[in-house]
Design a binder for these strands. Structure first.
Lengths: 222, 222
DNA sequence: GCAAAAGTGTTATCCCTACACCCATGA
DNA sequence: TCATGGGTGTAGGGATAACACTTTTGC
């Protein structure tokens, strides 16, 4: 026990809610716990903060180590610290949420995870710790941000059609949108541009292909 | 050094940005640091988390102990954890912001604070640690919340006139508002009601006095 | 009666919503 | 030629923004 302090210190972890859109559904990434507490339960990826790394670095590292995902949009969500939230010791969890385009997912199962899998947001198993509360808050935040930011673009691949983009919005908002109004609105934001290419998949008229002008930045709109 | 762990643990603190409106200005509460590091600098009230208390409890306690303020609106803001943000040891700060009606301020100077004072938001001294960043983020959040919540009511005393309420909005938004439009809008929210009394201060027509229907809850509007 | 803030409606503009048909392609 | 999704404009309604005068009080 080589690390000693005059006053008790809590442990600090990060946990990450990773969203993507797969099979026309909003899905989140969970890891089956290999060890106690909550052995066999599904939980968010995450882990203990290294003493010299920044909080967001920690989230990115844990995500990479436990799931193989990197280079995704990452934003701090909230910090959870109820004294009884972990039976082992006092743990403060700084939570993040991440959005990933479904075309760049490359999962792996890592040492401390018996299994890694995507679950539809509306059909998740019972989760370890207070992770159920965390995913609900992350979902709320994501949906709220649709209204005043370009966060939805983080789900898109490098290039996409307007119909594909509209489908993403429809899944996130859980409602059908009018095609003409959606196109007028999304183009009026000035955040996407035509690539000049056409997408010719399916037995129908080819669709114009767009890209996000500034794909690494989430813009505030309105 | 009786508290030992197999891995290094950071310290966890809470820091609180307290806003009020005084002298027709948005002001924040700062404490002059009595000890190193940053001795003599102004800083946010805050301090170390007790091992068995909830995060928000810690913020409320530190606020009460260091400034005498209690019973105010308190909301978690963001968690700051740059490895170099405190020269003593690794410190993770879970920050909160608080809003206080100016009529219920009762300040005190406590043991570890040489001085406590209000500063106009637009005229703050150089702050200790990364507290300058924290107050800027808190201010942004406060202004953003004006648009979709009733958070501004937290600045009001139990009863108030519509002109007083309008002045608060004008100070927070830093712009003049049209009186008729403001009144139509604020009444249409259905969140305030007439007390039946009149305010007769000044050589002019008495004003109707209102109260917030649900003063302890910040409602989401729109 | 005068200064000072309270109180009150209407109109124009903009934005959002609703809505239906033709086009280009592959099979 | 048929099935499939791509692509386009306009009109009505609701919300927001602009704007000025009368009322009530204290001195």
């Amino acid at each position: 026990m080589p690390y000693s302090y005059p006053y008790p210190h809590p442990a600090v972890t990060t946990d990450i809610v990773v969203f993507t859109i797969l099979a026309e559904k909003l899905q989140i990434l969970l890891i089956k716990r290999a060890a106690d507490p909550y052995q066999g339960f599904w939980a968010l990826p995450g882990g203990f903060l290294d003493i010299d790394e920044d909080l967001e670095e920690c989230a990115a590292r844990e995500l990479r180590e436990e799931t193989g995902i990197s280079g995704v949009y990452l934003e701090q969500l909230y910090t959870f610290g109820r004294p009884d939230r972990d039976p082992r010791e006092r743990v403060i969890s700084v939570t993040y949420y991440a959005l990933s385009a479904s075309d760049q997912l490359q999962l792996k199962a890592a040492s401390d995870a018996a299994d890694v899998a995507w679950f539809p947001m509306d059909d998740t198993p019972e989760l370890a710790f207070d992770h159920g509360t965390i995913i609900r808050m992350a979902h709320q935040r994501l949906v709220a941000k649709l209204n005043y930011s370009t966060i939805a673009f983080q789900f898109m691949p490098d290039t996409f059609t307007l119909s594909e983009l509209q489908t993403v919005y429809e899944i996130l908002l859980n409602e059908q949108l009018d095609k003409r109004n959606f196109r007028k609105w999304i183009l009026s934001l000035g955040q996407i541009e035509e690539t000049g290419n056409m997408s010719r998949r399916g037995n129908h008229r080819p669709a114009r292909v767009y890209r996000v002008k500034n794909p690494d930045k989430v813009e505030i709109i309105r």
